[in-house]
Write a protein that binds this DNA or RNA. Structure first.
Lengths: 141, 141
DNA sequence: CAGATGTTTCATGTTGTCAAGTAACTGGGT
DNA sequence: ACCCAGTTACTTGACAACATGAAACATCTG
C-alpha cells in the first residue's frame, strides 16, 4: 500500500519542502518589516491587484469568511484598506486598498526577494526549463 | 530602485508561489486527517526522526520556546509524545514520540502525497533536471 | 557566587473554526 | 405585480490553537 518512491523523487520532494520553508520564512519576514502579519500581507497583496468582495478573499485564502472580517478589520483600522459598497449588490462589501495600502503593497512586493535573487544564478534556458517543469508538475500545461 | 524582473523570472516566482500554496494545503489536510494541526504534525514529524530538547524544536520551527511548550503539551495530552529528562543536563526536557506517536508520524508521512503524484508525470530525466535546478536555486550545490 | 541557559507560566494579540443572526437577493406560485 | 421561502453575503460571539514577550524558576558554567 505504501507508494514506492524512488530516491530521486524523494530528493525532489525534500528540495521542494526546503523551497517552501524558505519561501515562508522570507514572506513572513518581509511582512514583519512593514508591521504586517503574513495573513494581512497576503490579503493586501490580493487586493492590490483588484478590489474584491470579502467572500472572494475567503475563497482565495481557503478560510471561512468570518475570519476575513477580522483581518480586513485590522487592515482597515490601519488605513491600508477600506470597505466600499458594491453598487450591484447591497449585501456585498468590496475591500479595496487605500493609496497608502497600495504603496505598502508595492514596497512589500519589492522586498520579496525570494527566488528572484536565486534565480538570477540560472541562465535563461535553465529558467525556461524550470518554468516548464513546474508547470507540468502543477498540471498548468 | 525597483529590481528589474523579466517576465520569465516573474512567472517562475509565481509558479513557486503556487507550489508553496498547494504544498501547504495538502500538508494541513493530511494533518487534519489525523486530527492534528499543522504545527503539531510538524513537531511530531521532527521528533520521529530523533527526540530533541524543546529549545531545538523552537529553533527548527523558528519560533519562541514558550510556544513549543504548548504544542508539546497538546501532543503529550494525546499520548503521542512524552517528555523525558536529559541525563546530561537536568534543565533540559527531551521530547520523544511514544510508540503511538511514531505510528501516527509514519501514517502521516505516507498520506503526504504532494509532489509524489505530480512528479510521476515527469520522466526520470526531467526529475533529474528539476532536482538539479532546485539544488542550484537553493545554493545546495 | 554571578551570569547564562532551558523550560514554564502569564498576559496579550492574531488566526482559524463553527453557529447564529441580520440584511439583501432570487425564483417560484398565485 | 406581489409575497414568501430559500439562498447568499457579511458580521458577531464563543472558543481553540498559535505566536510573542516578560517574568519566574531551576540548573549549568566559569
Amino acid at each position: 500500500m505504501v507508494p514506492r518512491t524512488d530516491p530521486l523523487t524523494l530528493e525532489v520532494v525534500e528540495l521542494i519542502g526546503t523551497v517552501v520553508a524558505r519561501y515562508h520564512e522570507e514572506y513572513e519576514e518581509a511582512a514583519a518589516e512593514h508591521s504586517l502579519t503574513g495573513a494581512q500581507a497576503r490579503v493586501l497583496g490580493l487586493l492590490s491587484h483588484e478590489p474584491m468582495p470579502m467572500r472572494r478573499i475567503a475563497q482565495r485564502l481557503k478560510c471561512e469568511p468570518s475570519n476575513v472580517t477580522g483581518i480586513v478589520d485590522r487592515l482597515e483600522a490601519r488605513g491600508l484598506v477600506e470597505r466600499r459598497p458594491d453598487p450591484a449588490d447591497r449585501r456585498v462589501k468590496l475591500a479595496a486598498p487605500t493609496d497608502e495600502g497600495r504603496g505598502t503593497a508595492a514596497r512589500l512586493r519589492d522586498s520579496l526577494h525570494f527566488a528572484r535573487e536565486p534565480l538570477a544564478g540560472l541562465s535563461e534556458a535553465e529558467r525556461t526549463s524550470l518554468r516548464d517543469l513546474l508547470r507540468r508538475m502543477l498540471g498548468t500545461d
